[in-house]
Nucleic acid binder design. Structure first.
Lengths: 237, 237
DNA sequence: CGGCACATTGAACCGACTCAACCTTCGTGG
DNA sequence: CCACGAAGGTTGAGTCGGTTCAATGTGCCG
C-alpha cells in the first residue's frame, strides 16, 4: 500500500468519499484537511440552508446527516434527499442564488466551507453533483413507480452504497440517522406502513435493523428483487 | 420598445426563453441564431440520449417536446421530467459523462448544438440548470405528497409557467404534447385515474382541455388550491 | 368506410391510510 | 436503584384513494 493510499485510509469519511470520486494528490488532500480546520458544529434539527433565502457559500458535510426537505402549507413534509458525509451543500452556479429547498440537520452535524479553485477538488465536486442528480432521479422512480416494500429496500440500498464510498458502511452494515417516521416522509408513506413493510423485509431476512444500525445481508439479491441498477455517471475509471 | 427587444420578440421560443433567463446582447442572440442554423430534425419517439451510454455534446431544444424517462425491468415506465423548447439536454460537467436517464422525443423535435464559451449564454445555461433542478424537486413533491388531483394541476401549472417563459403559452393557454397515458406515467398514476381526475378539474372549471390545447382559466387560484409556490432560483432581477 | 389511437365508463379489488391504543427502550432525576 | 416520562416502535380494525380489467365511445386520417 502506498503512502498516499495510507493517508487516505486514515482520513475522515468526507475526504475518503471525495478521494473516491476523483484522483486527489497529497496536496489536494491537505487542502481538504486544512478546510476542515474551519469546521463548525451544528446541533440536530437546525437549518443549514433556508428555502427562498440566499444560499451561503458552498459547504462540505464532514460528519453527521442532513436532509433537503420541503414542508407544504398544510404541514405535510417531504424529504427530497439525504445528505451524508462528503456531500456538498449550497453549490450553485447562478448569480445571487436563492435556495430552492431547506437543508436541515438530522443529527449533530459538522460542516466546513468547501475549498474552491483547486482543479482536482473541483473535479470531485462535479462528480458529486452528477451523483446527486442521479440520486434525485432515483427518488422520483421510488415515489412514482415502486411499491412501499420496494421503496424502503431501494432507499436502504442507496444509503448503503453511498456510505460505503465514504467508508461509513462496512460489510453492508451502517449507522442510520433516520427513524421510521423520517423514512416515511422520504418515501411518501406513513410511518405505520413503513413499520409493517419493514417487518416484512426483516422476516424475509433482507434487512436487519437493530437500534440505529442497519445491515443488509445480501444487497445484490435485494437489488435484483426491487429492480435497482447501480448508478454510473462516468466512463472514466 | 428597443431594437433589441423587438428582435427578441420576433425570435424563436428557444431563444426567447434563454433571453428571459439572462441578459443577452444582440451579439449573443446572433450566436444563438447561428447555432440554430445547424439544427437537426428528429422524429417522435426517438432517443436523443440513451441511459448508460456516453452523453453526446450538449444540445438545445429548438422546437418540440422531449422527456427524460426510465423504464423498469418489468416494463413500468416513469417520466422524470419534460423538456421544452429552450431547455438544454446533455449538459454535463464530469469527465466522460454517462447518461443517467434516457431522453426521448415526444413529438417531432428540432435540436441544435448548444453554443459554448460565450459568458452571457453560459449564464443563461446556469439559470436553466438551476430551474431544472427546482423542477425535479417539484416532481418529487408531486409524487411524494400530493394526491392525484393536485398532481395533475401542479404539473399543468408548471408546464404553463415554463411555456410562458418561451412565449409558447399565451393567456394561460398552450399546446400540450402529452396524452393522458403519458401524464399518468409522469405522475405515478394510471391513465384511467388521470382521466377521472381530469374530469373533476374540468367540471370545477380549473382546466379546459380540448384536443391538444390546454387552458388554465385561473392559474393563481389553482396554484393556491394545490399549494404550489412559484419557483425562484435567483435574487438577481 | 374502416381502422387506429385515445378517451371514457363501470364494478370489483387492494395497497396504503387513519385513528387509536399499547408496548419498549432509554435517559433522567428523586 | 427504581419511578417516571418522552420518543419511537408495534398492533388492530375500519376506511379510502387509486388500480385493474374489460368494455364502449369518439375523433381522425387514409
Amino acid at each position: 500500500m502506498s503512502a498516499a493510499a495510507l493517508s487516505i485510509a486514515a482520513t475522515s469519511p468526507a475526504v475518503r468519499r471525495l478521494a473516491a470520486l476523483a484522483a486527489l494528490a497529497p496536496d489536494d488532500l491537505s487542502i481538504l484537511q486544512d478546510a476542515m480546520g474551519a469546521s463548525r458544529r451544528v446541533l440536530a434539527r437546525r437549518e443549514l440552508i433556508s428555502e427562498g433565502k440566499p444560499v451561503p457559500g458552498p459547504m462540505l458535510i464532514v460528519d453527521g446527516w442532513a436532509a433537503r426537505v420541503r414542508i407544504l402549507p398544510d404541514g405535510r413534509r417531504q424529504f427530497l434527499s439525504f445528505l451524508l458525509p462528503g456531500d456538498l451543500i449550497g453549490m450553485c452556479y447562478q448569480p445571487c442564488p436563492l435556495a430552492v429547498s431547506t437543508v436541515v440537520t438530522l443529527n449533530e452535524v459538522v460542516v466546513c466551507p468547501a475549498p474552491l479553485g483547486v482543479p482536482a477538488i473541483e473535479g470531485a465536486y462535479r462528480m458529486s453533483q452528477a451523483l446527486d442528480e442521479a440520486n434525485l432521479l432515483g427518488q422520483i422512480i421510488r415515489l412514482g413507480r415502486l411499491n412501499a416494500e420496494e421503496r424502503i429496500a431501494d432507499l436502504l440500498l442507496e444509503l448503503n452504497e453511498r456510505l460505503t464510498l465514504a467508508g461509513l458502511s462496512v460489510d453492508d452494515s451502517f449507522e442510520i440517522a433516520l427513524n421510521q417516521e423520517m423514512l416515511a416522509d422520504a418515501l411518501g408513506l406513513t410511518s405505520v406502513h413503513v413499520n409493517r413493510m419493514l417487518q416484512v423485509l426483516r422476516r424475509a431476512g433482507d434487512v436487519v435493523w437493530k437500534g440505529s444500525r442497519v445491515r443488509l445481508p445480501d444487497p445484490a439479491r435485494l437489488a435484483r428483487r426491487v429492480g435497482r441498477v447501480p448508478v454510473r455517471v462516468t466512463a472514466a475509471v
